[in-house]
């Protein structure tokens, strides 16, 4: 287990280094000058030069890369070009929205998918199975921003149960905070739950065809008992993979939903930063997301080993 973990940790470091290089130098090539964006069309050339100097943009790219990486190792992400506040603080502030939102959506998705997937697998071919498959098909097909707008129309504009968007802030109380994340979380969770349900169901059905299940049934277990006792654990590998992917996706990919609900999350921060050419913010957030994805993958790898002891001994 330890050796397995060490090898994974090593590849994690290499991935991060490569990612940082790609992110930094790809953004260097993108046309657009943050100083020109800030100062607009009437700026005098010497004003632009003064701002560029203050932002440190007059220095060579490799030097700026080293500064950035060096700072990041110590938790210093630099100062935003446009907002002029430490990037680390900005990210921390946005994570207070994005992280709970991702967890909320993932929680909803798992809470729906596990029972639904198991239920459908247990009654394969029945009306229940057909119903679950039909609904999840729809859930995968509906674009989540469209579903989000539909919910806003019904729950915010017509019923007035929720506000149309915005984040109340945790200082307004956990309840108020969660409430403002509810519609976005549901919108995000719907397609994820659908996918997860289908994966859960097919993984279970696959294991249900294995010899050890037939043996278990022959010992006198019911289909349900065999499923819960033996099939479920063996079906977990693909399910964990999907959950890991979904978490990364929810953290990084909520940009559209954040825009629909005007939530101050990471996605909107990146979006604004890209249009303002606030490169240091874009670089740092993307780096953080890469880090999150890699760490989640690492955690999923570890979880494989936990559910499947055979993996622990592998070289």
């Amino acid at each position: 287990m330890l050796q397995y973990g060490a090898r994974r940790a090593m590849s994690l470091m290499v991935s991060l280094l490569v990612a940082s290089l790609v992110i930094f130098f790809a953004l260097e090539i993108v046309p657009g000058d943050p100083a020109a964006y800030m100062l607009g069309i009437n700026a005098e050339p010497d004003t632009l030069a003064a701002l560029r100097a203050e932002l440190g943009l007059d220095r060579a790219a490799p030097l700026r890369y080293l500064d950035w990486i060096g700072g990041m190792m110590q938790g210093d992400f630099g100062i935003s070009h446009t907002y002029r506040t430490p990037v680390a603080d900005m990210i921390a502030e946005r994570l207070k929205v994005s992280l709970p939102l991702a967890l909320y959506a993932l929680g909803l998705s798992t809470l729906i998918a596990f029972p639904a997937g198991i239920w459908a697998a247990q009654r394969r071919g029945s009306a229940v199975d057909l119903g679950v498959m039909g609904v999840t098909q729809l859930g995968v097909a509906i674009p989540n921003f469209w579903f989000a707008m539909l919910m806003v129309l019904v729950f915010a504009i017509n019923l007035r149960w929720f506000s149309a968007g915005g984040f109340a802030g945790w200082e307004a109380g956990i309840g108020a905070g969660l409430k403002s994340l509810t519609l976005p979380a549901v919108a995000l969770a719907l397609p994820q739950a659908s996918i997860l349900t289908r994966v859960m169901r097919s993984a279970l059905l696959e294991t249900l065809g294995e010899d050890y299940i037939r043996t278990a049934r022959a010992k006198g277990l019911t289909r349900g008992q065999a499923l819960r006792g033996h099939a479920l654990r063996n079906a977990m590998i693909p399910v964990l993979t999907i959950i890991g992917l979904q978490f990364s996706f929810l953290l990084a990919g909520a940009i559209i939903i954040e825009n629909v609900f005007f939530l101050p999350g990471l996605g909107r921060l990146v979006f604004q930063a890209i249009s303002a050419r606030d490169l240091i913010v874009v670089e740092s957030v993307v780096m953080l997301l890469v880090f999150a994805v890699i760490v989640v993958n690492f955690a999923v790898d570890m979880a494989y080993a936990w559910v499947d002891p055979r993996l622990r001994g592998q070289r």
Partner: peptide, 18 residues
């Protein structure tokens, strides 16, 4: 001052009287 960049979201926020 609340910042709502998406035109559809702006519509919803006004309609919902947010």
């Amino acid at each position: 001052f609340k910042f709502i960049s998406d035109p559809t979201a702006a519509f919803a926020a006004v309609m919902a009287e947010d």
